[in-house]
């Protein structure tokens, strides 16, 4: 039976991710042992973060199901609930309702394929979950290419992990920033440009693209030029939502409920929907 009661959680750790302080990663631990044991999610799923007296917000789960014992959520301070969340301290109690949505098809359609992860800005969160899941099940996937861009070096998420992934020889990592910056000797250029330069082969491959709509729009032409088709490109939609289970109505895109039928869908599926996201 569907209920709207969140699981109680405690904030175990808070990391300020970006130089503007607007993005923080919250490490949450479910309070009840039984719920901690029972929790299971698929990379790409989201959950409602619940602050009693403030409200609930749908946030992608940034941790991989292979990271046991806690959940990570990277949250941009933008509205009422996220602002209240940013003021909370380690040890505080809040709630999590989920996991919700479908997630990336890591256990079926993506299995055995070469994976290209393309992310811009703070949309990297559920792709971090996906990447970690794939690295923990490395034999199930072919070549893994990651293209990740942010405005400045200080706006990149998970910088310690980026350094670790760069050192691995089973991940092809390309991190880029929008403009030259002091102390940055990595790639410079927008994500679509870098994606075109990397030119990942579409053969037996799938691309998972998350980022601002404008980035996705301009990333497609260079990929299409080298043979990528819409049915091998996975996107994750966002819309205002309340219930998270396909009932309250808010998040619908035509017949598609982002919360229940999505948030993940292929670009081919998205192109058959009205542009109401």
């Amino acid at each position: 039976m569907i209920s709207y009661l969140p699981y109680p959680v405690r904030i175990d750790d808070i990391t300020v991710e970006t130089e503007d302080g607007n993005l923080k990663t919250f490490k949450l631990v479910l309070e009840n042992e039984a719920e901690r044991q029972a929790w299971n999610h698929v990379p790409g799923q989201f959950a409602m973060l619940s602050l009693a007296g403030q409200g609930e917000i749908p946030i992608g789960i940034a941790s991989s199901p292979t990271e046991e014992g806690h959940l990570l959520f990277t949250v941009n301070r933008a509205g009422k609930v996220t602002t209240a969340l940013h003021q909370m301290k380690v040890g505080d109690r809040m709630g999590v309702r989920g996991p919700l949505g479908n997630g990336f098809p890591v256990a079926d359609k993506l299995k055995g394929r070469n994976i290209v992860i393309i992310a811009g800005g703070f949309a990297f969160t559920t792709l971090r979950a996906t990447l970690l899941y794939m690295l923990a099940n490395r034999d199930n996937y072919g070549k893994i290419t990651v293209i990740y861009g942010a405005r400045t070096p200080g706006m990149l998420l998970y910088r310690d992990e980026l350094a670790q992934w760069a050192a691995r020889d089973d991940v092809d990592l390309h991190v880029t920033i929008d403009r030259e910056a002091e102390g940055w000797d990595g790639l410079v250029g927008f994500v679509p440009t870098i994606a075109g330069e990397v030119g990942p082969s579409p053969e037996n491959a799938a691309a998972l693209i998350c980022g601002p709509p404008i980035m996705i729009k301009f990333t497609m032409p260079p990929l299409e030029k080298i043979g990528w088709t819409d049915d091998q490109v996975y996107l994750s939609l966002e819309n205002r939502m309340k219930c998270g289970v396909g009932l309250c109505g808010h998040c619908n895109v035509g017949p598609f409920f982002v919360c229940k039928d999505g948030p993940v869908l292929t670009r081919a599926e998205a192109s058959r929907l009205p542009v109401e996201f």
Partner: peptide, 29 residues
């Protein structure tokens, strides 16, 4: 049957409630 969920806090207590909502309103989306 669409609905909205709001938290209502008063005198140190809160209740999470739902009300009817309408897709006719711009705020809905």
């Amino acid at each position: 049957y669409c609905f909205d969920i709001q938290d209502e806090a008063l005198h140190g207590k809160t209740r999470r409630i739902r009300y009817w909502d309408s897709c006719m309103f711009p705020l809905y989306t």
